[in-house]
């Protein structure tokens, strides 16, 4: 779900039926995006450093890790 990066815009050309036999060309603008990865923003590294610094049981370790990386889930 990570907030995703806007990388540019393009137009998609497509045709729609017009009348009985005709076709009409149309254009639709769309944004081209890229996903932000954990390796890029260091979220997993930060989560690891936090887990190693706090006294947590396995439930706490997994949960805090999930909270600190939740945007990487679709």
């Amino acid at each position: 779900m990570a907030p995703i990066a806007e990388m540019g815009w393009k137009e998609f050309e497509y045709e729609v039926p017009k009348g009985w036999f005709g076709k009409e060309k149309k254009k639709l603008k769309y944004v081209r995006y890229k996903t932000v990865s954990r390796d890029m923003i260091g979220s997993e590294i930060l989560a690891e450093a936090i887990k190693e610094s706090l006294d947590l049981d396995s439930h706490g370790r997994i949960s805090i890790s999930d909270a600190l990386t939740h945007t990487s889930q679709r």
Partner: peptide, 15 residues
Amino acid sequence: GGFYEAGKWSTFLHL
């Protein structure tokens, strides 16, 4: 620029 802004949102939401 794109990665910076989107990544900032992500890090903020995590923290």
